[in-house]
Amino acid sequence: MQVDVSSYIALSAVMFFIGVAGVVLRRNPLIALMAIELMLNAANLALVAFARAWVNIAGQVFVFLVVTVAAAEAAIGLAIVVAVFRRAKNVDVDEVARLRG
């Protein structure tokens, strides 16, 4: 690989911040969860790149764990979405403002 690690990190950063923008700006909860998946994957990319750079397998093992956790989190997030929006008229995150003070 002739590409420098920092290129991968920059790429990971771009993907990450796209995900951030998605979470903050989209009102459909499903899209927001997908954006969160994007962020997690961006982190994974960075980890794999560093694992390759330091030639340390621990980075890749970490990615393995992240994937697992992301899967669990996606499952539960989707379960929550289902529970909350099962009979809702609008599938909109702004409609569920019960924490309003």
Binding site: N90, V91, D92, D94
Partner: peptide
């Protein structure tokens, strides 16, 4: 999906 008004 149908969405409500944008509150922010």
């Amino acid at each position: 999906f149908s969405e409500g008004p944008n509150r922010l």
